[in-house]
Design a binder for these strands. Sequence first.
DNA 1: TCCCCGATTAACT
DNA 2: GTTAATCGGGGAG
Length: 211
Amino acid sequence: MSPARLPRSFYAREAPEVAPDLLGHVLVRAFPDGSRAAARIVEVEAYGPNDPASHSFRGMTPRNAVMFGPPGHLYVYFTYGMHHCMNAVVGRAGEGAAVLLRAAEPLEGADGMAARRGRERPLDLCSGPGRLAQALRVARGEDGLDLVAGDAMWVETGSRPESIATGIRVGVHETTRPWRFWLDGNAFVSRGRPGPPTAKSRTPRVRSTTP
DNA sequence: TCCCCGATTAACT
DNA sequence: GTTAATCGGGGAG
């Protein structure tokens, strides 16, 4: 049977609940020319309402308006003057919750991804939020896409993850919420990933911001 | 208006 | 491990 598209109800739950559930599922991007790209989600982060690290924390602005809309839509933001990052809006309309899609494993359309990325190695295609957005040609123009009823991008049921690891979010100063989730041991997880493979700790390495 | 800095990446030493 | 690239958001003045 063909894979089912995740329904609106899947996204209409709290971010820390939806985030780990997205792991293993397949992000599919369809282009106007009929070509496609697909990748298995291997790393995500939850951003909730009342979360100082979330773009929604200080209220709605033109930039983050989509976050406050109904769940199941794509929220795309531009950062560091050159990168785009994509999220799935979750929770309830008006809340401002989302799940950042941080890394995925290429399954289909790797040639197109490589062309858009300017990189050939599979590990360099979707292993990071900025990389993933570029590989799937997602920018501000894709902000607000409907992941449930739209025809440009959606998420299909994939294989359930082996083991899910948890840790604090990358690049976020707040260190109490363990809202980063990834497939333990998966090679396509982004950097800022956990220490040595042999380490028992599931705590990810944190980028130091002050010497 | 000014100014700092970010949910990052790639290329350095 | 360190740092340049590059620019919009939003708080401060």
